[in-house]
Design a binder for these strands. Structure first.
Lengths: 161, 161
DNA sequence: GATTTACAGGACCGAAATGGTCCGATATAG
DNA sequence: CTATATCGGACCATTTCGGTCCTGTAAATC
Protein backbone atom coordinates (compact mmCIF):
# COMPACT_ATOMS: atom_id res chain seq x y z
CA UNK A 1 0.00 0.00 0.00
CA UNK A 2 1.05 3.57 0.66
CA UNK A 3 -0.60 4.22 -2.64
CA UNK A 4 -0.69 7.30 -4.84
CA UNK A 5 -4.10 8.34 -6.10
CA UNK A 6 -4.93 7.44 -9.68
CA UNK A 7 -4.94 11.11 -10.53
CA UNK A 8 -1.32 11.33 -9.49
CA UNK A 9 -0.51 8.22 -11.44
CA UNK A 10 -2.05 9.80 -14.51
CA UNK A 11 -0.13 12.97 -13.83
CA UNK A 12 3.15 11.09 -13.92
CA UNK A 13 2.19 9.42 -17.16
CA UNK A 14 1.19 12.70 -18.77
CA UNK A 15 4.24 14.59 -17.58
CA UNK A 16 6.55 11.83 -18.75
CA UNK A 17 5.03 12.12 -22.18
CA UNK A 18 5.40 15.87 -22.23
CA UNK A 19 8.99 15.53 -21.09
CA UNK A 20 9.79 12.91 -23.67
CA UNK A 21 8.38 14.79 -26.60
CA UNK A 22 10.41 17.79 -25.63
CA UNK A 23 8.90 20.80 -24.01
CA UNK A 24 9.20 22.76 -27.22
CA UNK A 25 5.55 22.64 -28.17
CA UNK A 26 2.63 22.95 -25.88
CA UNK A 27 0.08 20.23 -26.27
CA UNK A 28 -3.57 20.33 -25.38
CA UNK A 29 -5.61 17.95 -23.28
CA UNK A 30 -7.15 16.21 -26.23
CA UNK A 31 -3.84 15.29 -27.80
CA UNK A 32 -2.42 14.05 -24.54
CA UNK A 33 -5.54 12.02 -23.88
CA UNK A 34 -5.25 10.39 -27.26
CA UNK A 35 -1.61 9.59 -26.69
CA UNK A 36 -2.18 7.97 -23.34
CA UNK A 37 -5.56 6.37 -23.97
CA UNK A 38 -7.12 8.12 -21.03
CA UNK A 39 -10.53 9.88 -21.02
CA UNK A 40 -10.30 13.52 -22.02
CA UNK A 41 -12.16 14.88 -18.94
CA UNK A 42 -9.74 13.08 -16.64
CA UNK A 43 -6.69 14.28 -18.50
CA UNK A 44 -8.09 17.77 -18.46
CA UNK A 45 -8.64 17.66 -14.72
CA UNK A 46 -5.13 16.44 -14.02
CA UNK A 47 -3.48 19.00 -16.27
CA UNK A 48 -5.45 21.81 -14.68
CA UNK A 49 -4.26 20.83 -11.25
CA UNK A 50 -0.68 20.50 -12.40
CA UNK A 51 -0.88 23.98 -13.82
CA UNK A 52 -2.25 25.30 -10.55
CA UNK A 53 0.62 23.65 -8.77
CA UNK A 54 3.17 25.34 -10.97
CA UNK A 55 4.41 22.18 -12.63
CA UNK A 56 2.86 23.06 -15.97
CA UNK A 57 2.32 26.31 -17.75
CA UNK A 58 -0.91 26.75 -19.60
CA UNK A 59 -1.84 28.68 -22.69
CA UNK A 60 -5.51 29.44 -23.05
CA UNK A 61 -7.60 29.89 -26.12
CA UNK A 62 -7.27 28.51 -29.61
CA UNK A 63 -3.98 26.71 -30.18
CA UNK A 64 -3.57 26.69 -26.43
CA UNK A 65 -2.31 23.82 -24.34
CA UNK A 66 0.22 22.87 -21.71
CA UNK A 67 3.98 22.79 -21.43
CA UNK A 68 6.44 22.05 -18.66
CA UNK A 69 7.04 25.04 -16.41
CA UNK A 70 10.65 23.95 -15.81
CA UNK A 71 13.25 21.69 -17.38
CA UNK A 72 12.45 18.04 -16.72
CA UNK A 73 15.52 17.73 -14.51
CA UNK A 74 14.09 20.26 -12.12
CA UNK A 75 10.66 18.75 -11.72
CA UNK A 76 10.69 16.14 -8.98
CA UNK A 77 8.17 13.41 -8.38
CA UNK A 78 7.59 14.97 -4.97
CA UNK A 79 6.53 18.18 -6.71
CA UNK A 80 4.09 16.29 -8.90
CA UNK A 81 2.58 14.63 -5.87
CA UNK A 82 2.48 17.98 -4.13
CA UNK A 83 0.52 19.53 -6.96
CA UNK A 84 -2.03 16.74 -7.20
CA UNK A 85 -2.60 15.61 -3.65
CA UNK A 86 -0.74 17.97 -1.39
CA UNK A 87 2.70 17.65 0.18
CA UNK A 88 4.00 14.20 1.03
CA UNK A 89 2.77 13.44 4.53
CA UNK A 90 2.64 9.82 5.59
CA UNK A 91 0.53 10.74 8.62
CA UNK A 92 -1.86 13.54 9.36
CA UNK A 93 0.43 15.18 11.86
CA UNK A 94 3.39 15.04 9.52
CA UNK A 95 1.86 17.66 7.27
CA UNK A 96 2.09 20.50 9.73
CA UNK A 97 0.42 21.80 12.85
CA UNK A 98 -1.64 18.85 13.90
CA UNK A 99 -5.02 18.77 15.51
CA UNK A 100 -4.28 15.32 16.81
CA UNK A 101 -5.76 14.66 20.22
CA UNK A 102 -2.77 12.54 21.20
CA UNK A 103 -0.40 15.43 20.69
CA UNK A 104 0.84 15.33 24.25
CA UNK A 105 1.08 11.63 24.86
CA UNK A 106 2.33 10.51 21.46
CA UNK A 107 5.75 8.97 21.79
CA UNK A 108 6.55 8.72 18.11
CA UNK A 109 5.80 12.22 16.91
CA UNK A 110 9.41 13.08 16.23
CA UNK A 111 10.58 9.84 14.64
CA UNK A 112 7.54 9.81 12.39
CA UNK A 113 8.47 13.25 11.20
CA UNK A 114 11.92 11.99 10.31
CA UNK A 115 10.40 9.00 8.57
CA UNK A 116 8.19 11.29 6.56
CA UNK A 117 11.22 13.33 5.68
CA UNK A 118 13.04 10.28 4.38
CA UNK A 119 10.20 9.44 2.03
CA UNK A 120 9.75 13.02 0.91
CA UNK A 121 13.45 13.51 0.25
CA UNK A 122 13.62 10.27 -1.64
CA UNK A 123 10.84 11.41 -3.94
CA UNK A 124 12.38 14.85 -4.26
CA UNK A 125 15.50 13.21 -5.58
CA UNK A 126 13.83 11.60 -8.57
CA UNK A 127 13.04 13.93 -11.46
CA UNK A 128 10.90 13.73 -14.54
CA UNK A 129 14.10 13.40 -16.52
CA UNK A 130 14.90 10.25 -14.59
CA UNK A 131 11.57 8.72 -15.42
CA UNK A 132 12.24 8.87 -19.12
CA UNK A 133 15.86 7.77 -18.81
CA UNK A 134 16.39 4.09 -19.71
CA UNK A 135 19.30 3.97 -17.28
CA UNK A 136 16.90 4.71 -14.47
CA UNK A 137 14.51 1.94 -15.40
CA UNK A 138 17.47 -0.40 -15.69
CA UNK A 139 17.87 -0.21 -11.94
CA UNK A 140 15.01 -2.63 -11.73
CA UNK A 141 14.07 -4.06 -8.38
CA UNK A 142 17.56 -4.14 -6.99
CA UNK A 143 18.60 -2.25 -3.93
CA UNK A 144 20.99 -0.37 -6.20
CA UNK A 145 18.12 1.99 -6.70
CA UNK A 146 19.01 3.61 -3.41
CA UNK A 147 22.21 4.81 -4.98
CA UNK A 148 20.33 7.54 -6.71
CA UNK A 149 19.44 9.01 -3.38
CA UNK A 150 23.03 10.05 -2.96
CA UNK A 151 22.64 12.52 -5.76
CA UNK A 152 21.58 16.12 -5.57
CA UNK A 153 17.82 16.26 -5.26
CA UNK A 154 15.79 17.68 -8.10
CA UNK A 155 14.64 20.46 -5.78
CA UNK A 156 11.82 21.46 -7.98
CA UNK A 157 8.84 23.70 -7.61
CA UNK A 158 6.74 23.37 -4.56
CA UNK A 159 3.02 23.12 -4.93
CA UNK A 160 0.59 25.33 -3.04
CA UNK A 161 -0.91 23.15 -0.34
CA UNK B 1 -0.34 13.04 0.88
CA UNK B 2 0.90 9.55 0.18
CA UNK B 3 -0.62 8.79 3.52
CA UNK B 4 -0.49 5.72 5.70
CA UNK B 5 -3.82 4.51 7.03
CA UNK B 6 -4.58 5.34 10.63
CA UNK B 7 -4.41 1.67 11.48
CA UNK B 8 -0.80 1.64 10.34
CA UNK B 9 -0.11 4.79 12.29
CA UNK B 10 -1.51 3.13 15.38
CA UNK B 11 0.55 0.07 14.66
CA UNK B 12 3.74 2.10 14.69
CA UNK B 13 2.77 3.72 17.96
CA UNK B 14 1.97 0.38 19.57
CA UNK B 15 5.08 -1.34 18.31
CA UNK B 16 7.27 1.52 19.44
CA UNK B 17 5.84 1.16 22.90
CA UNK B 18 6.40 -2.57 22.93
CA UNK B 19 9.94 -2.06 21.72
CA UNK B 20 10.65 0.59 24.28
CA UNK B 21 9.40 -1.37 27.24
CA UNK B 22 11.56 -4.27 26.22
CA UNK B 23 10.15 -7.36 24.63
CA UNK B 24 10.64 -9.34 27.82
CA UNK B 25 7.01 -9.37 28.84
CA UNK B 26 4.06 -9.80 26.62
CA UNK B 27 1.40 -7.19 27.05
CA UNK B 28 -2.24 -7.48 26.27
CA UNK B 29 -4.46 -5.24 24.20
CA UNK B 30 -6.04 -3.58 27.19
CA UNK B 31 -2.76 -2.48 28.69
CA UNK B 32 -1.46 -1.16 25.40
CA UNK B 33 -4.70 0.70 24.80
CA UNK B 34 -4.43 2.33 28.20
CA UNK B 35 -0.84 3.33 27.57
CA UNK B 36 -1.56 4.93 24.22
CA UNK B 37 -5.00 6.34 24.93
CA UNK B 38 -6.53 4.52 22.02
CA UNK B 39 -9.84 2.60 22.05
CA UNK B 40 -9.42 -1.04 23.02
CA UNK B 41 -11.26 -2.48 19.96
CA UNK B 42 -8.99 -0.55 17.64
CA UNK B 43 -5.84 -1.60 19.42
CA UNK B 44 -7.07 -5.16 19.40
CA UNK B 45 -7.69 -5.07 15.68
CA UNK B 46 -4.27 -3.67 14.92
CA UNK B 47 -2.45 -6.14 17.13
CA UNK B 48 -4.29 -9.05 15.57
CA UNK B 49 -3.23 -8.00 12.12
CA UNK B 50 0.35 -7.49 13.21
CA UNK B 51 0.37 -10.99 14.61
CA UNK B 52 -1.01 -12.37 11.36
CA UNK B 53 1.74 -10.56 9.53
CA UNK B 54 4.41 -12.13 11.68
CA UNK B 55 5.52 -8.91 13.32
CA UNK B 56 4.10 -9.88 16.69
CA UNK B 57 3.77 -13.16 18.48
CA UNK B 58 0.59 -13.78 20.40
CA UNK B 59 -0.14 -15.75 23.50
CA UNK B 60 -3.74 -16.71 23.99
CA UNK B 61 -5.69 -17.27 27.15
CA UNK B 62 -5.36 -15.83 30.61
CA UNK B 63 -2.15 -13.88 31.08
CA UNK B 64 -1.85 -13.85 27.31
CA UNK B 65 -0.84 -10.91 25.17
CA UNK B 66 1.59 -9.84 22.48
CA UNK B 67 5.33 -9.56 22.14
CA UNK B 68 7.69 -8.69 19.30
CA UNK B 69 8.39 -11.64 17.04
CA UNK B 70 11.92 -10.37 16.38
CA UNK B 71 14.44 -7.97 17.89
CA UNK B 72 13.43 -4.36 17.27
CA UNK B 73 16.44 -3.90 14.99
CA UNK B 74 15.10 -6.50 12.62
CA UNK B 75 11.57 -5.15 12.29
CA UNK B 76 11.40 -2.55 9.56
CA UNK B 77 8.74 0.06 9.02
CA UNK B 78 8.16 -1.53 5.63
CA UNK B 79 7.30 -4.79 7.37
CA UNK B 80 4.83 -3.04 9.62
CA UNK B 81 3.16 -1.45 6.63
CA UNK B 82 3.19 -4.79 4.88
CA UNK B 83 1.38 -6.44 7.75
CA UNK B 84 -1.30 -3.77 8.06
CA UNK B 85 -2.03 -2.68 4.53
CA UNK B 86 -0.10 -4.96 2.23
CA UNK B 87 3.29 -4.46 0.58
CA UNK B 88 4.38 -0.94 -0.27
CA UNK B 89 3.00 -0.24 -3.74
CA UNK B 90 2.66 3.37 -4.78
CA UNK B 91 0.52 2.34 -7.76
CA UNK B 92 -1.73 -0.58 -8.44
CA UNK B 93 0.58 -2.11 -11.00
CA UNK B 94 3.59 -1.81 -8.73
CA UNK B 95 2.26 -4.50 -6.44
CA UNK B 96 2.57 -7.32 -8.89
CA UNK B 97 0.88 -8.71 -11.98
CA UNK B 98 -1.36 -5.88 -12.95
CA UNK B 99 -4.76 -5.98 -14.47
CA UNK B 100 -4.22 -2.50 -15.83
CA UNK B 101 -5.81 -1.94 -19.20
CA UNK B 102 -2.96 0.33 -20.25
CA UNK B 103 -0.44 -2.44 -19.78
CA UNK B 104 0.73 -2.31 -23.35
CA UNK B 105 0.79 1.40 -24.00
CA UNK B 106 2.05 2.60 -20.64
CA UNK B 107 5.37 4.31 -21.04
CA UNK B 108 6.22 4.64 -17.39
CA UNK B 109 5.67 1.10 -16.17
CA UNK B 110 9.35 0.42 -15.57
CA UNK B 111 10.39 3.72 -14.01
CA UNK B 112 7.41 3.62 -11.68
CA UNK B 113 8.54 0.22 -10.51
CA UNK B 114 11.94 1.67 -9.72
CA UNK B 115 10.31 4.57 -7.95
CA UNK B 116 8.26 2.17 -5.89
CA UNK B 117 11.41 0.30 -5.07
CA UNK B 118 13.11 3.43 -3.84
CA UNK B 119 10.31 4.13 -1.41
CA UNK B 120 10.06 0.54 -0.28
CA UNK B 121 13.80 0.23 0.30
CA UNK B 122 13.86 3.48 2.19
CA UNK B 123 11.20 2.20 4.55
CA UNK B 124 12.91 -1.16 4.82
CA UNK B 125 15.97 0.64 6.08
CA UNK B 126 14.28 2.16 9.09
CA UNK B 127 13.70 -0.22 11.98
CA UNK B 128 11.62 -0.13 15.11
CA UNK B 129 14.83 0.35 17.04
CA UNK B 130 15.43 3.55 15.10
CA UNK B 131 12.01 4.89 16.00
CA UNK B 132 12.81 4.76 19.70
CA UNK B 133 16.34 6.05 19.31
CA UNK B 134 16.69 9.76 20.21
CA UNK B 135 19.55 10.04 17.72
CA UNK B 136 17.13 9.18 14.95
CA UNK B 137 14.63 11.82 15.95
CA UNK B 138 17.45 14.31 16.20
CA UNK B 139 17.78 14.18 12.43
CA UNK B 140 14.79 16.45 12.30
CA UNK B 141 13.71 17.85 8.97
CA UNK B 142 17.16 18.12 7.51
CA UNK B 143 18.23 16.26 4.44
CA UNK B 144 20.76 14.51 6.64
CA UNK B 145 18.03 12.00 7.19
CA UNK B 146 18.94 10.46 3.87
CA UNK B 147 22.23 9.41 5.39
CA UNK B 148 20.54 6.58 7.14
CA UNK B 149 19.65 5.07 3.80
CA UNK B 150 23.27 4.21 3.32
CA UNK B 151 23.09 1.72 6.12
CA UNK B 152 22.23 -1.93 5.96
CA UNK B 153 18.46 -2.28 5.73
CA UNK B 154 16.56 -3.81 8.60
CA UNK B 155 15.52 -6.67 6.33
CA UNK B 156 12.79 -7.80 8.59
CA UNK B 157 9.94 -10.18 8.29
CA UNK B 158 7.79 -10.01 5.25
CA UNK B 159 4.07 -9.90 5.67
CA UNK B 160 1.74 -12.24 3.82
CA UNK B 161 0.09 -10.23 1.07
C1' DG C 1 -13.53 -29.20 34.90
C1' DA C 2 -15.73 -24.79 35.49
C1' DT C 3 -14.62 -20.20 35.07
C1' DT C 4 -12.22 -16.42 33.59
C1' DT C 5 -9.15 -14.19 30.58
C1' DA C 6 -7.55 -12.91 26.14
C1' DC C 7 -6.69 -13.63 21.23
C1' DA C 8 -8.82 -15.12 16.25
C1' DG C 9 -11.68 -14.13 12.68
C1' DG C 10 -14.94 -11.86 10.49
C1' DA C 11 -19.37 -9.22 9.87
C1' DC C 12 -21.09 -4.84 9.91
C1' DC C 13 -22.10 0.19 9.30
C1' DG C 14 -21.67 5.18 8.93
C1' DA C 15 -18.57 8.61 7.23
C1' DA C 16 -15.34 10.22 4.21
C1' DA C 17 -12.47 10.12 0.20
C1' DT C 18 -11.94 8.82 -4.60
C1' DG C 19 -12.69 8.56 -9.57
C1' DG C 20 -14.95 10.32 -13.09
C1' DT C 21 -18.26 13.53 -15.62
C1' DC C 22 -20.13 17.81 -16.91
C1' DC C 23 -21.15 22.76 -17.24
C1' DG C 24 -20.76 27.83 -17.59
C1' DA C 25 -17.21 31.40 -17.79
C1' DT C 26 -13.08 33.30 -19.72
C1' DA C 27 -9.20 33.97 -22.75
C1' DT C 28 -6.95 33.69 -27.35
C1' DA C 29 -6.19 32.94 -32.47
C1' DG C 30 -7.75 33.76 -36.90
C1' DC D 1 -17.38 37.01 -34.50
C1' DT D 2 -16.42 32.25 -34.13
C1' DA D 3 -13.97 28.31 -32.93
C1' DT D 4 -10.92 26.45 -29.65
C1' DA D 5 -9.07 25.46 -24.94
C1' DT D 6 -8.24 26.25 -20.44
C1' DC D 7 -10.46 27.63 -15.59
C1' DG D 8 -13.08 26.78 -11.77
C1' DG D 9 -16.20 24.48 -9.77
C1' DA D 10 -20.35 21.43 -8.92
C1' DC D 11 -21.91 16.96 -8.90
C1' DC D 12 -22.56 11.94 -7.98
C1' DA D 13 -21.76 6.86 -7.84
C1' DT D 14 -18.60 3.88 -5.85
C1' DT D 15 -15.23 2.50 -2.96
C1' DT D 16 -12.42 2.72 0.98
C1' DC D 17 -11.65 3.76 5.75
C1' DG D 18 -12.27 3.91 10.65
C1' DG D 19 -14.36 1.94 14.18
C1' DT D 20 -17.49 -1.35 16.69
C1' DC D 21 -19.19 -5.71 17.89
C1' DC D 22 -20.03 -10.68 18.11
C1' DT D 23 -18.94 -15.62 18.16
C1' DG D 24 -15.39 -19.05 18.64
C1' DT D 25 -11.17 -20.99 20.65
C1' DA D 26 -6.98 -21.45 23.50
C1' DA D 27 -4.82 -21.09 27.97
C1' DA D 28 -4.43 -20.35 32.96
C1' DT D 29 -6.34 -20.53 37.55
C1' DC D 30 -8.80 -22.37 41.25
Amino acid sequence: MLRLSKLTDYGIVLLARLARDGSRESRNARELAAGTELPVPVVSKVLKQLARGGVLESQRGARGGYSLALPAQRISVAAVIGALEGPVAITECASGPSVCSHEGTCAVRDPVHVLNNVVREALATVSLADLIDPAFSALGDTSESLQILGRTPARAVVAPE
